[in-house]
Amino acid sequence: MRTPVDLAAARPGPAFTVTLDGREIEAFPGQTVAAALWAAGVTSWRTTRVEGRPRGIFCGIGVCFDCLVTVNDRPNQRACLVPARPGDAIRTQDGTGHDD
């Protein structure tokens, strides 16, 4: 199958590893956390405060705050904006993202 990476002839630097809840995932320089998760087949990384429903990307540009995720112990980061960095510990988050 053709991919967007083929279409744009992208040749990012070598892949690095991040973790999602401890599981190793491959990411490339230039990818946001959301892009790395999508590439790993993950489309949801948060559950909502009231009903515990899964959420992931919605607006893709930082407006809707649906894509909140915990990165290196900082909760409520927007996965569509935050670049993935080598060794990032990404964690799915429930509710407010704080332990309450």
Binding site: V5, L7, A8, A9, A10, R11, P12, G13, F28, P29, G30, Q31, T32, P83
Partner: peptide, 10 residues
């Protein structure tokens, strides 16, 4: 595309 993705055909 983010610069580090090094897209040669954006």
């Amino acid at each position: 595309p983010a610069a580090a993705l090094r897209a040669r055909r954006p």
